[in-house]
Write a protein that binds this DNA or RNA. Structure first.
Length: 480
RNA sequence: CGGGGUGUGGCGAAGUUUGGUAUCGCGCUUGGUUCGGGUCCAAGAGGCCUGGGGUUCGAAUCCCCACACUCCGACCA
């Protein structure tokens, strides 16, 4: 009886049994998300939104440290504007949603709800960039965009999703390329040091790059089911958009020149990545540096004299020390509370009961390992700080091990196919650079190219697919 | 957009084959009890069974049509 009710309350499917169902369970049971009336549009509940706010805070600080300014551009793009750059419109047209009526009047020109804002930024830049003195322009926008996806999943594929999009303009190609790479580094650093997610940095093939870009750089992460998640991208555009939008400036020699452009983005999709990188069968596991609640202080035998007061005092101390701390003095049983905050991925639980109070101590429990530690109340701040760092390091190491243990080298298509079928993960091979080989890999092994990593290795002499002359070492994988 | 699955109080399900006016668990409310891993007991509130049409004396149940969610595939961040 008790066993049965336990199972019904927890109700998170084991990831080994059904990974997709596990994922959906975590999203809803941890109260990150709710479904709305419109397909593909999700409600970010307070806990999920708080996570995004913390992500925003960390990224925004990094953007500002690297000289960027926030702006806000309109939601709607006139069709004529969207069509100025050929590759771009071809890439996005299939998933655009349109506004055709205003009030009761049909509009003369239909308006696209932004799927991304390159065209809006370019239109604006054409107005404000006149001289080399106006460069660089280092803008970022926090907003939502809309793409009419056919299928959707919480965080991983929303029709409307929150993101940031950086759009910059530079005097020289060199400077723009440096910016592109710099922002890739910002994302990689953020993922590894804040989210505890190890990344593979690289450049996309022509087939996989952003519509209209010259180069797309990416950070690829490996999820627990060994599928790949593209977690952030940074694009170098050259002067293609500038020419299409007629953005010119007088350079230092008073010659009319086209500026060089970049854009880079990271979305709420990363939350899906956090869930699938760190989560376990008890639910969410949050990296401490962005967890909305880092420490949950729970009273044991709270009806006993002084326990609730002591719990409140301890929580206040931890809050004062700068830790995001909460308590739960509801009349649920301790066991219920343990399970609840595990499901919500709170990195540390601090238990405080009559015995602890008597001994001037508390119990610190790590979410990732379940490890318990008895700590004197005199040193609790230092212990919590160390434990949070330990959780971060533990999560990172575990994810890194998953990435490394499931990255394989292959010399032939057959070998790659066999490895993918048996183990999943990333498979590195040599590649000739031909799109035909990418298509063949997709058709035969179900894998797309993830990236050509910055750090190259010689894993063979010729292209694993066609046997032709190898150009680069490339990563393949099944992607979200 | 192709293929499968599902739709019954807030959640998870039984009931559908063989039509007879809805059952169970969780949650919720109130009171008591317990508290170091989802305590226990009692009393209560809440559903015209996704929507629309049809068959029938009678439909959650049979038929048709929509819609939604979900999984797999194609496409995409």
């Amino acid at each position: 009886m008790a066993k049965e009710s336990k199972k019904q309350v927890s109700a998170i499917t084991d990831m080994e049994q059904d990974f997709a169902q596990w994922y959906t369970d975590v999203c809803t049971k941890a109260e990150l998300i709710d479904y709305s009336r419109v397909k593909g549009m999700f409600i970010l509940r307070p806990y999920g939104y708080a996570l995004w706010e913390n992500i925003q805070g960390e990224l925004d600080r990094r953007f500002k440290e690297t000289g960027h300014e926030n702006v806000y551009l309109p939601l709607l793009i006139p069709e004529s504007l969207l069509q100025k750059e050929k590759d771009h419109v071809e890439g996005f047209a299939p998933e655009c949603a349109w506004v055709t009526v205003g009030g009761s009047e049909d509009l003369e020109e239909r308006l696209c709800i932004r799927p991304t804002s390159e065209t809006l930024f370019c239109d604006h830049y054409a107005n404000v960039i006149k001289s080399w003195r106006d460069l660089p322009k280092l803008y970022n926008q926090w907003c939502s965009v809309l793409r009419w996806e056919k299928t959707s999943r919480p965080f991983l594929r929303h029709r409307e999703f929150l993101w940031q999009e950086g759009h910059t303009m530079h005097e020289t190609a060199q400077e723009a390329i440096e910016e592109t790479l710099q922002m890739l580094e910002v994302y990689a650093d953020f993922c590894e040091n804040i989210l505890a997610m190890p990344v593979v940095k690289g450049v996309k093939t022509d087939k996989e790059k952003f519509s209209g870009a010259e180069n797309t750089y990416t950070i690829e992460c490996m999820m627990h089911d060994r599928k790949a998640l593209q977690s952030g991208t940074s694009h170098y555009f050259g002067d293609g958009f500038a020419r299409a939008f007629d953005i010119t400036f007088a350079d230092k020699e008073n010659k009319l020149s086209y500026p060089h452009q970049t854009s880079w983005g990271l979305s709420t999709r990363i939350i899906g990545g956090i869930i699938m990188t760190h989560g376990d069968n008890s639910g969410l596991v949050l990296p401490p540096r962005i967890a909305p609640t880092q420490v949950m202080v729970l009273p044991i035998a709270q009806h006993k004299e002084g326990v609730i007061e002591a719990t409140g005092a301890l929580a206040a101390r931890l809050k004062a020390a700068g830790f995001r701390t909460k308590t739960d003095v509801s009349d649920q049983s301790p066991g219920w509370k343990f399970a609840e905050y595990e499901m919500k991925g709170v990195p540390l639980r601090v238990e405080l009961g009559p015995k602890d109070i008597e001994n001037n101590q508390c119990v610190i429990v790590r979410r990732d390992t379940g490890e318990k530690q008895f700590v004197s109340l005199d040193q609790v701040e230092a212990a919590v700080s160390a434990a949070l760092d330990a959780v971060h390091a533990g999560l990172y190491q575990k994810a890194k091990r998953n990435l490394e243990e499931h990255t394989y080298a292959a010399k032939t298509l057959e070998e790659a196919k066999a490895i993918q079928a048996e183990h999943g993960g990333f498979i590195k091979t040599m590649w000739c650079g031909e799109e035909a080989c990418e298509i063949r890999m997709k058709e035969e092994a179900g894998m797309t190219s993830r990236c050509i990593p910055m750090v190259q290795e010689q894993v063979g002499d010729c292209c694993a697919i066609c046997g032709g002359k190898a150009k680069d070492m490339i990563y393949w994988g099944v992607a979200y």
